[in-house]
Design a protein around this nucleic acid. Structure first.
Length: 423
RNA sequence: AGAGGGGUGUCCGAGUGGUUUAAGGAGCACGCUUGGAAAGCGUGUGUAGGUCUCAAGCUUACCGAGGGUUCGAAUCCCUUCCCCUCUACCA
């Protein structure tokens, strides 16, 4: 959530930023926000000065009662009773104005960093770098959805039977490869100084709001019927919300957490021919890294996180590229996002395997996540990234590493899998 | 899940309708004291909003959360979340 003092002080910047994110009528919205804020303040002031009067009167009555001047107290009491109704009205008006204001404020996305390219769609993203080269495969190379059947390692039909589309069952070496990747990614993160967290995978509404999934993406999450809890779409939600309503000691910063969880996404309305097989799932495993920083360090941290993710891809020997997302393609809460895409050898296309973002104070403002510097409390910066999401990594490994003697497991994974080939 | 007991500041803890302006203690910060430290003494010690050019000051709200009763609520009532004990169930 953007902060009002910022919007007020930097109206032009705010409008330009919102426009880069393709918010319609940005200028009108900013003007409306400021007007509503003025109104809120006026109403609040009115209510508070009435309250002040009534507080003073109550105190007086108390004093009179105690000194035994019953009659005077009674008179005063009748007088004050009349105030009550109007105070309630004023308080309600102030509250309503505040709600109207936050309801609008909450719908606004974060402002993009100055380096974010203009643009609307994925085609406008900027390629920052490309690593490795396209693997040379035999003419009869198969896409992963055929390979998983050939080697019987991931079963969509069984998943359909017990749950539904997009919930595959991993079997044998398929399951072991999953476990190997999870452990490898966690170990690498721990080596890089991250602290492992195993959070709940159901979260409440406050947490969904804290990181920005609610109300923006409500339709994308699964909800439990009785309790109204949401299945997490990413470990970012529980791990970042650990710090909701927290004033972190400056000495504890930066915070670097990592966690592995399954992730659940309804992906309503986003199905199509290009999302076959593992390309898009309702449930998948992901290792997420989360960092919390003082504002001045957050962009250096973002680069560090990007390098960490790239290191993983390099160790796995995957041809990849890094994109700087354009204003139209980046997420609601993000100020700057790098996407890492791995090459899928048989589909001949890039697959997004990680997204690393700096949210600056956007999430922290919703979370009330602060630190104290020189006695003043300020909002922290939050960042997160996938390191990494499994299914598309698996797809790329399967496709890129296929050969006559089966699928070759990347060397770094062999200590984790206990086998060198899937065949 | 049922019955009972709880939730107060950074922490412990007092507080069952009116100088509560949340006692007291611990911790922390600063000062005094000291050769230095400890002890001791003194002072300070939350968050958010409003007012204000800034600061100070003033002011409003906050005792798990939300609502209510009252001139006045940490205190009474309702709803809800969480914790503890016992019982039941259970990996």
């Amino acid at each position: 959530m953007l902060t009002l003092p910022f919007i007020r002080a930097y109206q032009e910047t705010t409008i330009a930023g919102l426009q880069k994110k393709h918010v319609a009528n940005a200028a009108e919205i900013v003007a409306k926000l400021l007007a509503q804020d003025d109104q809120r303040k006026a109403l609040l002031q009115q209510a508070e000065s009435a309250l002040e009067k009534s507080n003073a009167a109550a105190k007086e009555i108390g004093a009179l009662m105690q000194s035994g001047q019953k009659e005077l107290a009674e008179g005063k009491r009748a007088e004050t009773a009349a105030l009550k109704a109007s105070i309630k009205e004023m308080e309600e008006a102030a509250k309503a104005a505040e709600k109207e204001l936050t309801d609008l404020l909450v719908t606004l996305p974060n402002l993009p960093h100055s380096s974010v390219p203009q643009g609307k769609t994925a085609d406008d993203n900027e390629v920052v770098l490309t690593w490795g080269s396209v693997p040379v495969l035999a003419a009869d190379a198969q896409p992963h959805w055929d390979l998983i059947k050939k080697y019987d390692i991931i079963d969509f039909d069984l998943g359909n039977k017990i749950t539904g589309a997009g919930f595959p069952v991993y079997k044998g070496k398929g399951a072991r490869l999953q476990r190997a990747l999870i452990n490898f990614f966690l170990d690498e993160a721990i080596k890089a100084g991250y602290y492992e967290i195993q959070p709940p995978i159901l979260i409440n509404e406050e947490s969904g709001f804290g990181t920005g999934q609610l109300p923006d993406k409500e339709g994308q999450m699964y909800v439990t019927k009785e309790e109204g809890l949401f299945l997490i779409p990413t470990a970012e939600v529980p791990i970042t919300n650990l710090y909701r309503d927290v004033i972190v000691n400056e000495k504890e910063l930066p915070i670097k957490n990592v966690g592995h969880t399954p992730c659940f996404r309804r992906e309503a309305g986003s199905w199509g021919a290009h999302v076959r097989g593992l390309n898009r799932l309702h449930q998948f495993d992901k290792i997420e890294i989360v960092q919390i920083h003082k504002p001045e360090n957050s962009y250096a941290a973002l680069e560090e996180m990007s390098l960490h993710v790239q290191g993983l891809l390099q160790k796995l020997g995957l041809h990849y590229r890094v994109l700087r997302l354009c204003g139209g393609d980046m997420g609601f809460a993000s100020a700057l996002t790098y996407d890492m895409e791995a090459w899928s050898g048989a589909q001949n296309r890039w697959l997004e395997v990680s997204s690393v973002s700096n949210f600056e104070t956007f999430q922290a403002n919703r979370l009330k996540l602060r630190t104290k510097i020189d006695g003043k409390s300020i909002l922290c910066h939050t960042l997160n990234g996938s390191a990494l999401a499994l299914p598309r990594i698996v797809a790329s490994i399967l496709e890129n590493n296929q050969g006559p003697d089966g699928i070759k497991i990347p060397e770094v994974l062999v200590p984790y899998t206990g086998f060198t080939h899937i065949n």
